[in-house]
């Protein structure tokens, strides 16, 4: 277990398969090589599945739209480089990003 005030919990949501690809490249470019990727879907998709009105057959559609959540623990120094990379992406490919300060962590070695 380590006590590092300069670590950040990074949560990135890529809205589609096409947006996920450059995000992975960007993470590697800024030196973040460890992350957990979770396939996800938006709340709107969940609500829609509950209450279809006309298109019931859509229940058989794959429920993901290619969106993914990336969770990573990284050093605060990587954030600025990642922010600069994301800013250069086309608006449609930019992930939703959240960085939170980390009081403590255990169970893994950080990527920086």
């Amino acid at each position: 277990m380590g006590e590092r005030t300069d670590m950040r919990l990074l949560v990135l949501i890529a809205r589609s398969e096409a947006a996920f690809d450059p995000l992975v490249t960007g993470l590697l470019d800024v030196g973040i090589s460890g992350a957990t990727v979770v396939e996800s879907r938006g709340l709107a998709a969940v609500l829609r599945q509950d209450l279809p009105i006309f298109a019931g057959l859509a229940a058989f559609l794959p429920q993901t739209t290619g969106s993914r959540v990336v969770i990573s623990l990284c050093g605060a120094d990587r954030l600025e480089a990642l922010r600069a990379y994301v800013a250069e992406l086309p608006p449609g490919d930019r992930p939703l990003a959240i960085a939170l300060p980390v009081d403590s962590f255990f169970g893994l070695e950080p990527t920086s």
Binding site: R15, A44, R48, I53, F54, A55, L61, G66
Partner: peptide
Amino acid sequence: ASFELFIMRAEHVVA
């Protein structure tokens, strides 16, 4: 996929 979701969101409005 995104488009399907996008138009189905409007289902309730149209209904």
